[in-house]
């Protein structure tokens, strides 16, 4: 479906297909993400959720497809997009402190060779305050719990001052307090007019946390406001007959 004239989408994905060894992981994805939404991307395991955001960010190669950010190519608009990867993908034994890890978010703005200075440190400290991790600023990241790690990652993204935040399973393996803290920050971001995309694993909390949702299972099943499309029909189409089990998990 062609986009309506005049409506600016935060992200516009055309015709995205990703395959490993002839097996399709994402097929013919057309996805339009309006500005200012807090969107969950849901689907069963292997549905391609992580792959979708990686392909959007250029981390994963796709066979076909284009990604536009605010009408321009992703490469041009890189600075407007902040990524929060799965924390399980990182080796947390890496020698660095919490503050240092968060300051890494400023590297994109600094460009080559320049070193982070006072301005960057201040931004990092503010971000740490926002996620409630300021007391831990000199702690080694290897000493953090899952929830603390996630907060640090979020702080790193906040420092980028982006317009769009893309997160991969941020609520996986975190304690309840952290979950609440994070969702509150995301809602705040939405209040500020930012766009937030979250790969989410817990169907039960979708209506509570998000205003938009995308159902994904290799193909895009549906996308739209939660109130309209978060129903049995779409759950069935995405998860199959066992969707009730998936919901209750």
């Amino acid at each position: 479906m062609a986009s309506q004239k005049g409506v600016k989408y935060a992200i516009n994905v055309h015709d995205l297909t990703v395959a490993y060894d002839y097996k399709p992981v994402l097929w013919d994805i057309h996805l339009q993400v309006p500005e200012g939404v807090l969107m969950a991307i849901v689907g069963p395991n292997g549905a391609g959720k992580s792959t979708l955001i990686k392909a959007m960010l250029g981390i994963q190669k796709s066979i076909t497809g284009t990604v536009e950010v605010f009408g321009k190519s992703y490469k041009e608009m890189r600075k407007e997009v902040a990524y929060v990867p799965q924390k399980e993908a990182i080796d947390w034994d890496f020698p660095t402190t919490v503050l240092d890890a968060v300051m890494m978010g400023t590297y994109g703005q600094l460009g080559w060779i320049k070193r982070p200075g006072k301005k960057e440190k201040k931004a990092a400290l503010e971000a740490l305050e926002q996620v409630g991790m300021l007391p831990f600023k000199n702690r080694q990241i290897s000493q953090l719990s899952g929830g603390q790690q996630q907060r640090v990652f979020l702080a790193r993204a906040l420092v980028q001052n982006a317009s769009i935040y893309i997160m991969d399973e941020p609520f996986q393996g975190v304690d309840a307090t952290t979950e609440i803290a994070i969702i509150n920050i995301l809602k705040e971001l939405r209040e500020q007019g930012k766009t937030v995309l979250v790969v989410h694993h817990d169907l039960q909390t979708v209506p509570e946390y998000f205003d938009w949702v995308t159902f994904l299972n290799v193909k895009k099943i549906a996308t739209g406001p939660v109130k309209e499309i978060f129903n049995d029909d779409n759950l069935n189409k995405t998860y199959g007959i066992n969707y009730k089990v998936a919901v209750n998990q």
Binding site: R78, Y83, Y107, G108, R156
Partner: peptide
């Protein structure tokens, strides 16, 4: 010396580094 921060980020989180344009 020149590329310290880029190398550091590359070692720590290569995917994230890519999104920063490194």
């Amino acid at each position: 010396f020149l590329f310290y921060k880029e190398l550091k980020l590359l070692l720590f989180d290569a995917d994230y580094a890519k999104t920063l344009g490194i």
